Amino acid sequence: MVPGEESILTNLRRGALEYCVLASLRGGASYGRDIARQLTEDGVLAGGEGTLYPLLARLRKSGMVETRWQESTSGPPRRYYTVTPDGERALDVFVRAWEPFRTAVDTTVGKGT
């Protein structure tokens, strides 16, 4: 059976999404809904918010992000996420590994066209 596009995207996201979250936090603290909006707007990086919040919890438990609660003028307090130095280092390692990996995939896939 040939996998469908959604199955392929799920497998690709599995390895890269946490680093995309860390990269999105490099610009400063953000709360979950903003992170979700940013990563789901194209429908490619994340399929929806359902996968994001468990991922944020894992990143927090592993020390890659820190959280703080902040009062909101338009509702309940919001949990803001910030990348930690450990998260920055992990993202740097990922970027160094990703660039040659991406190039190899692009080269290999491009050979068939």
Results as ranks from 00 to 15, higher is better:
14 R>L: 13
83 V>Y: 00
36 A>C: 04
93 V>T: 12
74 S>M: 12
6 E>S: 13
105 V>R: 09
41 E>Y: 10
64 M>K: 04
77 P>H: 10
42 D>C: 05
3 P>V: 10
55 L>S: 02
22 L>Y: 01
2 V>R: 15
83 V>G: 00
82 T>Q: 10
111 K>W: 07
47 G>Q: 10
104 A>S: 09
27 G>Q: 10
83 V>C: 01
79 R>S: 04
24 S>K: 08
99 E>L: 15
90 A>T: 03
80 Y>K: 02
55 L>H: 08
46 A>L: 08
61 K>I: 05
54 P>Y: 03
42 D>L: 12
77 P>W: 04
52 L>V: 01
63 G>A: 07
98 W>E: 05
65 V>C: 00
38 Q>C: 08
50 G>A: 06
112 G>E: 13
8 I>L: 14
70 Q>V: 15
37 R>V: 05
43 G>F: 07
63 G>K: 06
106 D>Y: 13
83 V>P: 00
9 L>I: 10
16 A>K: 08
55 L>T: 04
2 V>F: 07
23 A>Y: 11
106 D>N: 10
34 D>R: 11
48 G>T: 02
88 E>N: 13
108 T>K: 12
5 E>L: 14
8 I>K: 12
89 R>Q: 13
70 Q>M: 13
72 S>H: 11
64 M>H: 09
63 G>T: 06
20 C>L: 13
37 R>F: 03
111 K>V: 03
19 Y>G: 05
58 R>T: 09
5 E>C: 04
94 F>K: 06
61 K>R: 13
109 V>E: 05
44 V>N: 04
1 M>P: 12
20 C>M: 14
33 R>N: 06
93 V>E: 15
27 G>N: 07
50 G>C: 02
62 S>C: 02
88 E>R: 14
43 G>A: 08
53 Y>H: 07
6 E>Q: 13
33 R>T: 11
36 A>F: 00
69 W>S: 11
18 E>F: 04
45 L>V: 11
73 T>L: 10
